[in-house]
């Protein structure tokens, strides 16, 4: 049994298809990152899994419980940190956390200690007595995340957990999410931030216009781009024509371009396997290599490769 399983999951908002026959699974104990631009269907998927929205068709289950027919049981095993922290304008952060912990069944003897610890870690302790409406955007967002860190559900869902948060705050949130996984939770994170995805993900699912276009580990996604790795070579000798031809015929070479007399650029797949072969060829041809620089594709490049659009572009 997977903690999350969807089968042909579809959600329509009028004529707009937010999700299109999505098949998606999450393994126990992993951090899965849903990566996609605004409007790609990430939030809709999370809201269906947390039983806030109902699917138009298809199935979804959480820890074996159907999200439509066993929705209360689903809500007993998951917690969701929403994209927008809103709703309790006249309450104080400490009251909101106490309420959430109580309703979600956090044991009374651990509640206060846990709340204090999380508030201090997320640098909200000094703001614990302020009204929610007086918090900054970053503070409100950290409070939204804090609810789930206090709840410690079996399945924790975070929708853009560090948006509006400064760089230092982001790192603190990410470390807490990782710790939550180490403590036994399975984690699903939706984001459109490349750094967040790279820092957190065991696996990444790329969503685009409600469709799953790829799902794998970050390294496998990068490796799956033919010619995605760039290897820059500088030789001692100026005439490297023979070497360029030989490298062009190597398995895994996409193309080789000559930048200068003694400078080649090779677009290859799996640079870690290609470089030793290149070294052998150079040795055989008696060409000395002065420098080798390998550049992997970024997650932006991965997204562009799979969707044909940059991650920053809004899905339409």
């Amino acid at each position: 049994m997977h903690p999350i399983e969807t089968e042909k999951l579809t959600k329509l908002y009028g004529k707009t298809k937010a999700l299109r026959e999505l098949d998606f699974t999450l393994d126990e104990g992993e951090i899965m990152v849903l990566l996609g631009p605004n409007g790609s269907g990430k939030t809709t998927l999370l809201l269906i899994l947390s039983t806030v929205l109902k699917p138009t068709s298809g199935k979804a289950s959480v820890m074996g419980f159907d999200v439509v027919n066993q929705s209360t049981k689903v809500r007993q095993v998951l917690g969701i940190s929403f994209q927008d922290a809103r709703g309790f304008w006249r309450h104080k952060p400490i009251e909101i956390l106490q309420f959430h912990a109580t309703i979600c069944g956090v044991p009374r003897d651990k509640r206060e200690t846990l709340i204090e610890e999380i508030l201090k870690d997320l640098e909200l302790w000094d703001a614990r007595g302020k009204l929610f409406m007086h918090l900054s955007g970053g503070q409100a967002k950290r409070l939204e995340v804090a609810k789930i860190l206090v709840q410690r559900p079996k399945l924790a869902i975070f929708d853009e957990p560090s948006s509006q948060v400064d760089l230092r705050g982001k790192r603190i949130i990410w470390d807490h999410i990782r710790k939550l996984r180490e403590d036994g939770s399975t984690i699903l994170v939706a984001t459109n931030e490349v750094r967040e995805a790279e820092y957190l993900a065991d696996r990444i699912t790329i969503l685009d216009k409600g469709v799953k276009v790829a799902c794998n580990t970050l390294q496998s996604l990068k490796d799956s781009i033919a010619g995605g790795d760039i290897v820059e070579l500088e030789f001692e000798a100026k005439d490297s024509k023979d070497v360029a031809e030989a490298l062009g015929n190597l398995e895994g070479t996409f193309r080789v371009t000559k930048e200068e007399e003694n400078h080649l650029r090779a677009y290859v797949s799996m640079a870690e396997e290609w470089v030793p072969k290149m070294t052998n060829i150079c040795y055989q041809k008696g060409v000395k290599v002065v420098s080798v620089r390998v550049t992997e594709p970024s997650l932006d490049d991965v997204f562009l490769h799979f969707t044909g659009r940059a991650l920053g572009a809004t899905a339409t």
Partner: peptide, 11 residues
């Protein structure tokens, strides 16, 4: 205001 989604997500 966003309170209803929160309430709907509670157990």
């Amino acid at each position: 205001e966003g309170r209803l989604p929160y309430l709907l997500s509670l157990p």
